[in-house]
């Protein structure tokens, strides 16, 4: 079973994404900020990261920069943000994201991206 780490400080958002991903057959773990996500990435291997931008302690950009610059196992990352601007999207890709989604999440859009990035459907 493919494993996905949800990184978001908003509990309701984590619950929503967990429900979508688990109903599609993925195993899900959660972290509430970038520091906790890095700790989880040290302990486990994930097939995909679903990362919010704005979080306390270490934000999504910071988390991805640390992850990409580390020797931790790498996996695709979807960055999720309330910000729809082109600059925000550029920042996400520069930090190491593979895709960018604007909140609120549409379940079918999220699942399509996840399947593409994990390699279950052609990109």
């Amino acid at each position: 079973m493919k494993r996905i780490l949800i990184v978001d400080d908003a509990a309701t958002v984590r619950l929503f994404h967990r429900a979508i991903l688990e109903s599609a057959g993925y195993a899900v773990d959660e972290a509430v900020n970038g520091i906790e996500a890095l700790e989880k990435a040290l302990q486990s291997t994930f097939d995909l990261y679903l990362v919010d931008v704005n979080m306390p302690k270490l934000d999504g950009y910071g988390f991805l920069r640390e992850l990409r610059g580390s020797e931790l196992p790498q996996a695709p990352a979807i960055m999720i943000s309330t910000e729809a601007g082109a600059r925000d999207e550029q920042l996400a890709y520069a930090a190491g994201a593979n895709a960018y989604l604007v909140k609120p999440t549409r379940p079918e859009r999220l699942l399509l991206l996840v399947r593409m990035l994990i390699g279950e459907v052609p990109a």
Partner: peptide, 12 residues
């Protein structure tokens, strides 16, 4: 028509 909003308001 927003799935997230339906989920979040129901939970609240």
């Amino acid at each position: 028509d927003e799935p997230y909003m339906q989920f979040a308001t129901d939970l609240a």
